[in-house]
Design a protein around this nucleic acid. Structure first.
Lengths: 179, 179
DNA sequence: CCCATATGTTTCACGAGTAAAACACCTTCC
DNA sequence: GGAAGGTGTTTTACTCGTGAAACATATGGG
């Protein structure tokens, strides 16, 4: 049985994670499978949403990490160094270097040397880069709105609030938590 | 107390996504940033959780996709073909081929030819593979429980339910939705 | 002033995933 | 029976991300 069949075309009662959890409970009845129901679903939702989100971006020839980089420059409204971009987009410095090279070649960002510290450079959007971000963003948000529209508005608010709380605590914790 | 209240209507600090959304609203006041608050948080939570989850698995020398593959075999309780494993773990056939090669070399899974259809093979856990999964899973779940323990129990249940609803609809929809 | 160390960025070697082609085999229909 | 087309799996060529080392520069102590 495929995942899609398990979920049912429409009006099915279970998502795929529920089915997986049921299987685990049958095999290991003693285990507390509670965390799976949250973490498994978050992972699965992220995978599905990312796949869906990619559609509008791909039309513009951008990957999501590339868009995140451009978006960081756009939303902060000022230049950022490669290191700041790495922190802002939660990726490694090496990845940022590669993306910057690519985006520079495409004329979407520009670099400027720092006057005082010659190790650092400052990256900013070109006009073309800014226009691209501003053009894509509404399209992207509209698409995301459509994707989420299956969930009632109050459910969306609750979900956003709960995820916000979880995320806030994860971010506060996970840096320190070493097991 | 409702979930939204429990989650705190701007009671405490902000998570990173809230800060990002605020930046976007300052730059583009007209846009509906609602979807970001869900999708951005899901992605960020997934990234953080995955990083955290990896710790127990890495001790066993397994990546998460490898563990998912072994887990699919363990929880279904029977042999699966490479194609079924790909569907069950939501990954491409090529990726499953590579993982199977690796896991076979490590003696965690075995392959058996099909008697009727010589294209397909059947994959099953070895005893070592089964023991590894059974040994890791409780550790993994305990770790996940610890990671989630910052969230109150009712919040966890609500979050699981909301994510389940979202996931169920995404799975029903996204296959058909082509924008 | 110069060395030691810290910091910002890039390069390198590699691993892992993907789409598409290739391959192997099955099934159907004439 | 054999060509035509379908299905299950693997191979191929490629992209992208990563950690570690390399590189370039700054800074502070002796």
């Amino acid at each position: 049985m495929t995942a899609a069949e398990a979920a049912g075309p429409r009006g099915g009662r279970d998502d795929t994670v529920a089915a997986v959890v049921r299987q685990w409970r049958a095999v290991h009845p003693g285990l507390d499978t509670g965390p799976m129901e949250i973490i498994g679903r978050i992972n699965r939702c992220a995978a599905l949403l990312q796949q869906a989100e990619d559609a509008p971006l791909r039309r513009a020839g951008l990957s999501r990490p590339e868009f995140d980089l451009l978006g960081a420059l756009r939303r902060t409204g000022h230049e950022l160094t490669p290191g700041e971009l790495a922190r802002e987009t939660f990726s490694s410095g090496a990845a940022v270097t590669k993306r910057l090279k690519h985006l520079t070649e495409r004329g979407l960002v520009e670099r400027r040397a720092d006057a005082r510290d010659r190790r650092v450079s400052h990256v900013r959007l070109t006009d073309a880069g800014r226009d691209l971000v501003d053009g894509i963003l509404p399209e992207q948000l509209a698409y995301e709105t459509a994707v989420l529209s299956d969930l009632e508005a109050p459910g969306q608010d609750q979900l956003a609030a709960l995820l916000g709380e979880l995320l806030m605590r994860l971010e506060g914790r996970l840096g320190a938590l070493r097991v």
